[in-house]
Design a protein around this nucleic acid. Structure first.
Lengths: 67, 67
DNA sequence: TTACAATGTCAAGTTTATTTTACATTTTTA
DNA sequence: TAAAAATGTAAAATAAACTTGACATTGTAA
């Protein structure tokens, strides 16, 4: 899963720490998600989408791979 | 978090087992989510939204509680 | 009314998301 | 250029999502 967090954060002029506080997670969680270490929980994805006034799927790009 | 999974599943005439297979999780996972035992991962939420041709937030209703 | 399908649930185990603490590196600012 | 701020990263711990297997209950159809 790819994501546009870093760009959105830059556009809104937030530091990782400020964003973390805004959505109530640790700074390391924001960093790890930006770096693609893991995907956010649904709740966190919703909070981020609301904060940036966009859709979850505009931030988190998931491409289904044929199983 | 509330969700409309059971209703959507009924509208589309899926059993829990059929839905589970369609989104590649176990039947127990679908049942647990319907029953509110836990929230789906972001990937599962995306798969469900795509299957039902709707938005994640139309299926999963999260109300931010003031912290 | 008996069989079968669907649903509910539980326990135990695995994987993934997230936390805290800590420190190193990079970037920005005084 | 030195200090401060921001970012990257890692380990250890906890919590949450999800699996498999098993069984009980409910709903449905023969």
């Amino acid at each position: 899963m790819k994501n546009k967090l870093k760009v959105l954060r830059a556009e809104h002029d937030y530091t990782q720490d400020q964003l973390a506080k805004a959505v109530e997670v640790s700074r390391q969680t924001i960093n790890a998600i930006e770096k693609g270490k893991f995907d956010p929980s649904l709740v966190l994805a919703i909070k981020l989408a609301r904060l940036f006034k966009t859709d979850i799927e505009a931030i988190f790009i998931y491409e289904d791979q044929p199983s």
